[in-house]
Each structure stands twice: as structure tokens, then as C-alpha cells.
Design a protein around this nucleic acid. Structure first.
Length: 587
RNA sequence: GGUCCCAUAGCUCAGCUGGAUAGAGCGUCUGCCUUCUAAGCAGAAUGCCGCAGGUUCGAGUCCUGCUGGGAUCACCA
């Protein structure tokens, strides 16, 4: 099926073409004004400018072309040359029933599916998850769901941070705490113990300690650097320790991400591509892409015509270690070999824009991957209420589980205060509170344009009024409740006949789903879908308030409205699912 | 200092290829629960779209300069 605005675009485009003008001028969109016709076309002004003619005259000629068009009930010319278009009444009805009959409620699939790797989450081993990871996870998860839904072949990868200096820091921290462990015996060759010498609590305590110690003590930092280089050179005891660290971290992360409802196809990390690095670097050397500079092996990525001076990418540090950019390049190679994607998306904060610029250019220069296929899906920094960048303070670590717990509590309190979940047993109530809390957090995050900075404010996360996740859930739950009652009353949904204003508006809103999905997926901007779902819920609430369903005056009207409710619910639930938000049966 | 991003209602934010009277939510004010869940609905007030120029029939949107805030500028990730 094709959305009404696209059908109209074709019709108006043909009218332009009939006058030997580009059909592109025929673009029809939702009207920007209330009270006038629901659709408008602004192409006459642009076309007239190009043809050096009068826009109103052109508009009149277009209107003449479309005079008896079956899709168009009326067409008015306004202002300098706007076309205000009212679609034929039966078009609205036809569309309503097509949406109702479509399992995807109007959502189309892309014509050219791509294989897309999406790299997000990116938590570090031992380093606790903070709000930045939450943002990457929530946005990345929404994008993977969206891109899959419109037909792309998507592979998601958590891309664990498990290979850098932090590992050397951790290893040396453990050595200071427990110097007698067998892992530190350079002469011992294995086999290594099966059980990890540390648990997740040890790791989350040790990392900040090690990090601080290295910051204040250059000697301590040198030891950590050396350990990092040794680890990467293949020291068996260190590698065995690293494997323990990774396993312990992944076990904990799986619980965290499970609670968030975020899924990854791959749980690979930087360490996984270590075996590729040596050969890759060798090849880069042979092909003449590298050079030595100040003791480090680099790839120059600056290009002529650059406005900014882009520093070279450092492949191997002076201490002989692979760095962030090195593993990123090796990861691209790994993905090409194992997945062969068309596109790789990196959902990472915008502070790393120049890092990705370097990596993308190096990848293109060395022939690893075409630059057009590499996209940095950047998002704003997470700020505190003071507007400054949110940083984990030395003691106060922001744990994901704490955040979810707070949202959960707020949801529970709100349920009780509103008397909404009365009559439910404790188990159901807490399950509902969990869904509401998660919806609050995810929607609060996703509804912002991802590139702007984001104020982390727990109050705002758990606000349940207005443009929020819980409002959307509430709308969905009211629909579900109505459907249950209709079923009990034996009312069967049937042909939709949009009559009342609220009904027509609702149909038009439902018909806009596909447009929102296209915007959200092609721009990688989930907030466009958020906006649509909020408008849908709002439009439905107006319909709900003004159009009784179960007590409508005729069976025909009951059946028509019930069908509208069913279709609205299906679209709302589909959309929420694409955002990673679950809908309860009642609340 | 160089480069990039941001600046819209008291607060948090939308604003799609440049289009008509710049929109939501929160907060404030007024109504609406014996009727499908009031976390809702109906209505009201609220703006030198940071400042100054430019491009044009038309600029919140594009260009230049300025102010203010943020990010980043080779061996952390």
C-alpha cells in the first residue's frame, strides 16, 4: 500500500510533468496549518522561480491539470502559490481499511536491503556502565530494530572495550593486591586455573583504583603501559587473566543488558581481533601506507583541502602497543571477512568524531572499506543538571542497575498514587512498574535529536505526564482495555467509515507512519518515530474523548470505530517495540 | 589559538527539499470523571528563533562576521 501523501505526490508530480516541469516539484506533505486542507504542495513557487514565471499562474495551471483527478476532492490556491489539497472522501476510507488490513499498518520495506553492522553499547571490561553507555545502548538498539523492520540485514555487535591500557592497569593492580598468583609467574606455561581470581565487584573496585593511581603516579603508569605491551605481545599469564576478566564482565553485562531489553548478535571485543593486527599492520607497511614518526608507526590521513588539521592515525605506539584506532581497523577487517557488510554504523558519542574521521579515512586509504559505508552515528554528551559533562566521580559510580531501580521505584510510587494498579497482585504490579520505568527512561532519551547534548536528570526520566513513555503506554493500555470489553460484548470490528473529524484525523495520522519510519531509518534518527508515536497517541486520545466506541449509536459505527482502535493499537505497539519499549496489558 | 557542534516560550525540547499566523511537553490559569482507565480531554496566557549583516518574492532553516557555551587538537578508550 502507498500512503496518501505519496499517491498525491504522484498525481501532482504528473501535473508538473505535463507542463514540462520536473515532477519533483509535486512533493505533497502534511499541511503545516490547522483548519485548512490536510495536504499541501509548495512546489509552484520553486518551479516558477526556476522557469521565471508567476507562481500563482503556475499554480492555476497545475490546478487545472488536476481538476477532475479522482484522488482529489478539492484543490485551493493560497498565498503566493501554495496548493492546499483535500483528498477524495473515499480515498480516506479506502486507506483506512487498507491500513487496518495490513499487518504492518502501512510500513513499507526498503527496495534495496543492505547488510548493516551496527556497533553500539561498547562497555569496557571492569569499567562500570555509565549514562553514556546507556545512551549508546538505547539509541543503538532502537536503530537495529528499525533497520531490521524496514528490511535490512542487521548484525549488532557490542564491541567490548577489552584490549587497551586499562587491561594493563587492571593486571598490575591485581599484581599489587595478590602478587603470588600463578598468572604473574613468567616461567609458568599453564594450564591456568578455571576459576577467575576476581569477581565483578573486585573488578569494579580495582579499575577506578588503578586508574587513579596511574594518573597521579607516572611510574605506576609506566608499569601499566609495559604490562599492556606484554599482554599484547602474548604473555600467557596475562592473556589468561584477560580471559577471566572478559568472562566475568560479560556475565555481568548480560544481566544488565537483559534488564534493559537490549540484545546483541555478537559479543565480540577488541581482544578478539588481536590475532589480525600483526598481519594487517605488516600489509599496511608493505603497501606503503605507514611511516615512523616520533617513535610511533602512523598512517597519515590528512587530505588536501582539509580545513582542519587532522592528526595522523597512530597504529603502533612508541611502547609497541596497538591502540584504539588499530583495533578499530582490525575490527573492520574482521567484519569484512566474516560478515561482508555494505554499511557499518558506530553509535558512539560525538566527542570521538575525529577518531572516527581518522579511522574511516585510513580504512578508505588502505582499501579496507569504502568511506561512504562507514557512519559515525554520533550522539550528544551526557550532561549533569549543571550543564557540564556528566562524569563518574571517583567514588560515586553510576550503575545501570541503580538507574533502573530508581525509575522502577518512581513508577511504583506513581502507580500507587494514581490508584491505577489496584486489585493486582504484587507480582503483576512490580512487573508493570518495571515496564513503565524502562519506557520512561528509553523514551526520555530517544525523543531528543540524538546529536544534541543531553541533560541527565533522574527527575525528568521519571516524569510520567505529557510527552513521555508512560503516556504512550497509557494510551496503548486504554486501547487494550477497550478491545477486551468489546470482545466480551461481542462487538466485531468491521469496515472503517471515517465520518467524525477526530476519526479522519486519526486515519491521516495512522497513514503517516511510513513517512516517519523512512525519516527515522534513513537519517538514523529514532526521535522522528518518537514524535509520530506521540502524535498518534495524542490523536487517539482526542478520538477516545469525542468518539464513544462501545456505546456508539449503531452497530456499524461500533464496528468501524473498534477497527480504528485495533489498528491504532497495532501501530502504536509496533512503533514502541521498534523503540525497545514493551507494552503491558493493563496499568 | 585551529577545527567541529550548539544557542527557539520561565524550564525541557520539536521544527522534514528555504514557505503561509514558529509548534509540543512541563509549569501557570479555567472547565470536564453516576458513561470505553482523568498518567486523560477541551480552552487561555506565554517568543527581538543569541547579535549584526547578506542571498531572495520569502530565512528559525542557506552564507559571512560577532558574542556566549560545549567538544576536540598524535602515542587513554
Amino acid at each position: 500500500m502507498t500512503a496518501i501523501h505519496l499517491q498525491l505526490t504522484e498525481a501532482v508530480g504528473n501535473a508538473f510533468a505535463a507542463l514540462s516541469l520536473s515532477a519533483d516539484f509535486g512533493l505533497v506533505s502534511r499541511s503545516s496549518r490547522d483548519g485548512s486542507a490536510p495536504f499541501q504542495c509548495n512546489g509552484c513557487m520553486a518551479a516558477a522561480k526556476l522557469a521565471k514565471s508567476n507562481p500563482r499562474e503556475l499554480a492555476a495551471r497545475i490546478a487545472d491539470e488536476l481538476k477532475d483527478h479522482p484522488l482529489i476532492a478539492s484543490l485551493e490556491i493560497a498565498g503566493p502559490g501554495f496548493l492546499n489539497i483535500t483528498p477524495a472522501p473515499d480515498l480516506l476510507a479506502t486507506q483506512a481499511n487498507a491500513l487496518a488490513a495490513d499487518a504492518r499498518t502501512g510500513a513499507s520495506r526498503v527496495g534495496d536491503p543492505k547488510k548493516i553492522v551496527i556497533d553500539f553499547g561498547g562497555p569496557n571490561v571492569a569499567k562500570p556502565m555509565h549514562v553514556g553507555h546507556l545512551r549508546s545502548s538505547v539509541i543503538g538498539d532502537a536503530l537495529q530494530r528499525l533497520l531490521r523492520f524496514v528490511g535490512h540485514d542487521v548484525v549488532s555487535d557490542i564491541h567490548l572495550g577489552d584490549w587497551g591500557l586499562q587491561m594493563g592497569q587492571l593486571i598490575t593492580e591485581l599484581q599489587i593486591e595478590q602478587p603470588d598468583l600463578i598468572y604473574f609467574d613468567a616461567d609458568f606455561g599453564g594450564p591456568w586455573p578455571d576459576n577467575a581470581p576476581v569477581d565483578i565487584d573486585d573488578l569494579s573496585r580495582m579499575y577506578p583504583a588503578a586508574s587513579m593511581a596511574c594518573k597521579s603516579d607516572p611510574d605506576r603508569m609506566d608499569i601499566a603501559r609495559k604490562a599492556t605491551a606484554e599482554l599484547q605481545a602474548g604473555r600467557a599469564g596475562y592473556r589468561a587473566l584477560l580471559d577471566h576478566f572478559i568472562a566475568v564482565s560479560i556475565a555481568a553485562l548480560k544481566i544488565d543488558f537483559g534488564n534493559l531489553g537490549v540484545h546483541f548478535d555478537l559479543w565480540k571485543g577488541e581482544a578478539a581481533v588481536d590475532p589480525l593486527i600483526k598481519l594487517m599492520v605488516e600489509k599496511f607497511k608493505q603497501d606503503g601506507f605507514t611511516e615512523m614518526s616520533q617513535g610511533a608507526l602512523i598512517i597519515r590521513v590528512a587530505e588536501e583541502g582539509d580545513k582542519k588539521e587532522l592528526p595522523p592515525l597512530i597504529l603502533i605506539s612508541g611502547a609497541g602497543a596497538a591502540l584504539y584506532a588499530t583495533t578499530d581497523l582490525a575490527t573492520i577487517q574482521d567484519r569484512v571477512q566474516n560478515i561482508d557488510p555494505d554499511i557499518i554504523l558506530y553509535v558512539v558519542d560525538l566527542g570521538q568524531a575525529s577518531h572516527f574521521e581518522q579511522v574511516f579515512r585510513a580504512a578508505a586509504k588502505t582499501g579496507l572499506f569504502a568511506q561512504e559505508g562507514l557512519e559515525h552515528i554520533k550522539f550528544g554528551t551526557v550532561n549533569g543538571k549543571d550543564g557540564k559533562r556528566f562524569r563518574t566521580r571517583s567514588g560515586g559510580v553510576m550503575r545501570l542497575s541503580d538507574l533502573l531501580g530508581q525509575a522502577n521505584e518512581a513508577a511504583m510510587a506513581r502507580l500507587s498514587a494514581a490508584g491505577l494498579a489496584s486489585g493486582m497482585d504484587a507480582e503483576e504490579k512490580s512487573e508493570i512498574a518495571r515496564m513503565i520505568g524502562l519506557a520512561a527512561i528509553k523514551f526520555a532519551d530517544l525523543r531528543n535529536v540524538r546529536t544534541t547534548n543531553y541533560v541527565f536528570d533522574i527527575e525528568r526520566f521519571t516524569e510520567f505526564e505529557g510527552k513521555t513513555g508512560p503516556y504512550l503506554l497509557y494510551a496503548a493500555v486504554r486501547m487494550k482495555s477497550m478491545l477486551r470489553k468489546a470482545e466480551a460484548a461481542g462487538i466485531i470490528a468491521s469496515k472503517i467509515i471515517p465520518e467524525a473529524g477526530a476519526e479522519k484525523t486519526l486515519v491521516l495520522m495512522l497513514d503517516n507512519f511510513d513517512h516517519a519510519l523512512k525519516g527515522a531509518t534513513t537519517k538514523r534518527h529514532p526521535h522522528i518515530l518518537c514524535e509520530h508515536l506521540y502524535e498518534l497517541a495524542q490523536t487517539f486520545s482526542k478520538f477516545y474523548a469525542s468518539c464513544p466506541v462501545l456505546s456508539a449509536e449503531s452497530t456499524q459505527l461500533q464496528a468501524s470505530r473498534l477497527n480504528l482502535v485495533q489498528t491504532s493499537l497495532r501501530q502504536l505497539e509496533t512503533g514502541l517495540e521498534l523503540l525497545g519499549i514493551e507494552t503491558p496489558e493493563r496499568m
